[in-house]
């Protein structure tokens, strides 16, 4: 971000983040990740590559998992966003998936973990809605929930890199919460 903002380069947007409405005037260049971290003080979502390649910034937008580093905030007006800070709901209790990550020791440095958590929750919803993956067999019936074995989980989570290599434990943690 080198040049000064110009008139006509800002707009007002309203986002619901973890259930709370925020109306903000945003620079059109602002991506959701930077808005969350720098304007809303929600620093759980992490900046890894900043180019949509690592998944550390994954959040849920209207229930779908997306890379927040590639989303212009201005285009999200009216959206419902859930970040890792919102997974536990109103209480202090962690989400069952967060508990499973702790129980399974599914991280070392933890930097990718918020993205892994949001991505896994999006993934479970996709599979329940019958979305196939690259490894889903051609005979799997369309529109029916897809059973998630380890190869399905690995393929569906391939957009989230873990440079510590905690993948086996991440898969186990996700398996723990599969309904």
């Amino acid at each position: 971000m080198t040049s000064a903002p110009q008139p006509g380069h800002h707009s007002e947007v309203t986002l619901r983040v973890n259930g709370k409405p925020h109306t903000l005037r945003v620079d059109h260049r602002r991506v959701l990740l930077d808005l969350l971290r720098e304007e809303l003080d929600l620093t759980g979502s992490k900046k890894g590559c900043d180019h949509g390649q690592c998944g550390a910034c994954t959040v849920l937008v209207d229930g779908r998992r997306l890379n927040s580093c590639l989303l212009l905030a201005v285009a999200l007006d009216g959206s419902e966003i859930t970040t890792v800070e919102g997974l536990g709901g109103d209480g202090d209790e962690p989400h069952p998936l967060q508990r499973a990550f702790l129980d399974r020791d599914a991280f070392q440095c933890g930097y990718c973990t918020p993205g892994q958590l949001c991505s896994a929750l999006g993934m479970l919803a996709e599979a329940a809605a019958g979305h196939p993956s690259h490894v889903t067999g051609p005979t799997a019936p369309s529109g029916r929930p897809v059973p998630l074995d380890r190869s399905e989980i690995r393929e569906r989570m391939s957009g989230n890199l873990c440079r510590c290599g905690a993948y086996p434990r991440i898969v186990e943690a996700i398996e723990d919460v599969i309904p």
Binding site: G52, T58, R64, L66, N67, L70, G122, P132, M157, G159
Partner: peptide, 28 residues
């Protein structure tokens, strides 16, 4: 990629979509 009509009638299209990018990128 998940549309039953695409999966049933144009499997190459569904397979190609699912072979591309990551789930987060395909969602956008």
């Amino acid at each position: 990629a998940a549309d039953p009509r695409v999966r049933d009638r144009y499997p190459a299209l569904s397979q190609a979509l699912l072979a591309g990018a990551s789930a987060q990128l395909r969602n956008a």
